[in-house]
Design a protein around this nucleic acid. Sequence first.
DNA 1: GTCTATATAGCGATAGAC
DNA 2: GTCTATCGCTATATAGAC
Lengths: 201, 201
Amino acid sequence: MTKPSFRERVLQAREDAIVASVNRLLADKGFESMTVDEVAADVGIAKASLYKHFPSKEALAAAAMTTVLDRALAFLEQEAKREAAPVEHLKAAARWTMQVTLAGEMPSLPSQNSTLRTALMQHRGYLDRVMMVSERLGTWITAAQAGGEIDPKLPAEAVLYTIYARACDPVLPFLRAGGRLSDEQVIEVVLATCFNGLMTR
Amino acid sequence: MTKPSFRERVLQAREDAIVASVNRLLADKGFESMTVDEVAADVGIAKASLYKHFPSKEALAAAAMTTVLDRALAFLEQEAKREAAPVEHLKAAARWTMQVTLAGEMPSLPSQNSTLRTALMQHRGYLDRVMMVSERLGTWITAAQAGGEIDPKLPAEAVLYTIYARACDPVLPFLRAGGRLSDEQVIEVVLATCFNGLMTR
DNA sequence: GTCTATATAGCGATAGAC
DNA sequence: GTCTATCGCTATATAGAC
């Protein structure tokens, strides 16, 4: 790990700017509707220059998703140090996810048979990070089910997917559009329905 | 309401076939990835013929969404005749929605700033049906909250959106892809997490 | 690596014959 | 109303000068 040269650092900064733009546009319009021209315009460079950094639109998106996963891993690492019951860690993870989503920084997953999906499935860095996040959450889920906080009758993978799904929950933007709740209130409502259910306890 | 001629009936049948294809393709790939050429090929007619029936791709999708809403209204009407607690009606509605989704017959909503979304917002028939479905569910939600079955502290619109959101819950296809659960089991698991929450009761 | 300019392909929509 | 053929546009991606 040698010290990066000035030239390398300015290049890295540019790539960070690109990824940030992609992240936002991806969250706002989705992969299919986002165009490379838009990204270039948003970053403020020529489209051809983009392709010197990333070989394809899919690679662009994959870099954005990978970056978000790195942010998630950083958060989870901090959260793991906190003293709390496993289910509280899970709630914190879901809350973080929804905060990122409402902040417009959560690139929407490739819903179905997209070219992006096949590209991601071959992207080592992406898959590795998904695995790491899943394992971190998985240990909390197992512990929470063993302790009876999370319903032990639920398949663990169902719990995992349910938490993941908060990242693209359409209830979040809908409730915000209603205008009667602040972003914080929206998150607490969805968090409550997620962990407590719709029915009265 | 005069009896339709033979010619009218064969035309209606063709439009039904078109809508059915659109419905499936929309559920499978989403609006942006679905192409009009695909629809034409799937129906087995020329693309130009499609445009004699529907003036645009958006109109095609709107017709599919409207048809699904009609199916939903028909189901809700039957469900309303059944003797049951309000919350049971809501569960039945959510279950029906998920069944349609897993059957590949639920056109995915326009996630965000799509051209489809603006088109739907000007489509009278679509908006009317959304209103009717929302009102039907709304009365059950109000009754269930008054009776204390659904948590009265939750905003009614949050309950409504949460039930709507089962139509595009990514947990459904993910759990199915896991291969360890039948479609019926997948639905019951998601239904349980929706109404009971992740935590043990 | 950055730019301007262009290649190439696919898409929504239409023209016009039958 | 159905078809074949095509328009017009936009998108991803690249060539080539600097």
